[in-house]
Nucleic acid binder design. Sequence first.
RNA 1: GGGCGUGUGGCCUAGUCUGGAUAUGGCGACAGCCUCCUAAGCUGUAGCUCAGGGGUUCAAAUCCCCUCACGCCCGCCA
Length: 562
Amino acid sequence: MSYPLLEFKKEIIDEVKRVVEVSEELIEIEVPSEERGDFALPCYSLSPTLEKDPESIAEFIAGKIELNRGEFDQAGPYLNFKTDEHHLSRETIRGCLEKKEDFGELSPKEKKIMIEHTSANPNGPLHVGRARNPIIGDTLARIYEKIGYDVERQYYVNDIGRQMAILTWGRQNLDEEDLTPLQRDKEDYDLVRYYQKASQMLEEDEGLETEIRSLIRAMEEGDDEVFHSLKKNSETVLSGITRSLERLNIHFDSYQHESSFIVDGSVQEVIEMLSKLKETDKEEGALFFNLDDDKIFVTREDGTNLYPARDIAYHIWKAERADELIDILGEDHKNHGEFIKNALLSLDIDPIPEIVFYSFVSFEGEEMSTRKGTYVTLDEFMDTAEEKAREEILKRRDDLSEEVVGEIAEKVGISAVRYNVIRVQPRKPIDFRWDEALNFQGDSAPFIQYSYARTHGILEKAEEGLELDGLNLEGLEDGEVRLLRKIAELPLVLLKTAENNAPHLMARYAYELAAEFNQFYRDYPVLDSDEKRKERLAIVKSFSYSMESVLDTLGMKKTKKM
RNA sequence: GGGCGUGUGGCCUAGUCUGGAUAUGGCGACAGCCUCCUAAGCUGUAGCUCAGGGGUUCAAAUCCCCUCACGCCCGCCA
């Protein structure tokens, strides 16, 4: 099994290469507007190498090229290629019926990729802003899996360090009655109150700083009691965080604890390796790495290690276990990310990570901070999304049981949260507003889910099985071919999304696919279409499978009723 | 002050890396479409010259320089 558009693109590249004898990098195939064709070759970039004007090159290629899978025409300096519609339709339907909800998947690559995402400090519940991280990471993980990678999703648990020391101090010294009332019956909501109160006290009383410091030192020096106390608190909050994420359809394959790199001595080794580099120097006994004009400190003057050192140890550990690495980091870590890459390069470590940075999310124009307690938690946001979904369902349906309404609301709520976060390019800032985030019309999760639900209105009433062999695909109408063509794009989109680590492309595709189906649905009756019924059912079924694949890739939920 | 990033119709957004053929789509607005597989849908109209200025090029939203606005970073915190 292979995919018609992938094959066609490959054929074009091979043929152009054969005809003009240039290296493959010079052949830039782009996707033109729909009416021009499936692919286009602008000949401008070949002009310098071939020492001819673009139009003559186009003419030259047009005269020599031979394609089995489609045709082409010359338009000035462009060549436009259009695949054979019948072949495209047949192969796309065949692909969908064979692969079903895995449509779009590519053969295994024998490559391991480790995707680190979230890695939020376990000091309180996840807020919507932070949730951008797991949603980007998990979506990329799903995409890499689909194109054949062996994927490991990893949470790096910052179970030591200052923030955990503050939480632990709070747990040791504060009583329940000192705290704000419990917002939600969940362990992360419980413990964050200790963290917030302790942070607040620390701001008012600098004397507490020494107590925090001594907790950190005790931990690093291997004080068992302190160590276990920190770990216990971090594990408790972590379990609250992961429960929230599971609700968002996100899970991890492994957890790696920051403390482990201190315990096993690897941080010390890293510090020794770093100290031998020409990029490092010491200032009053503290080791730092020169990053352009910045000094990135990796140890304190008392010799205790700092987060950058531990993160290098972690990345070396990761590099030994995977062929490719991806880190999802907030924009506040840009500098740190540069340091990690530069330091790993200097240490001759391979692979170094690809880092996806995302900008922060504000809410109704306000910044969110765990320390200050100014945030909307992921749980709250999802509750509201579900509630809103419920209202919308009840506006339209009065024939569903409360249980069914609840199920659909949950599916729509989860999907809306994920979709609204992933549809925007990571590096762009997002300002969440309830009315926009929970707008269920147009470019939204329910729009996409609804297109899928519509297929079931049809498929459940049609009981016959589907056989590719009995179909007459010669006389398909424009809108039918257009839908199949859009379905056929899926593998191309998956590849491009992974290549650029740009998951928003996948979201955009999901919307376009759904929109194309909605037009088909309007124009072509299926069940009453007599002589075209079988063919149209096959198209609906193909769309249904491809949409299942797309929804799964975005971590969204499918629903047969809405 | 320095570094990084962002700035596309009233609002949100694609395209920017890899310069090219009429700048993508949504929300909102206005005008239409349910005796017919779920109207959370579909169709049409109006609206942007791509923050501003300069430059490179046959060609710039896309590359370079300057300016403005906003965000993030500039800790022996993480």
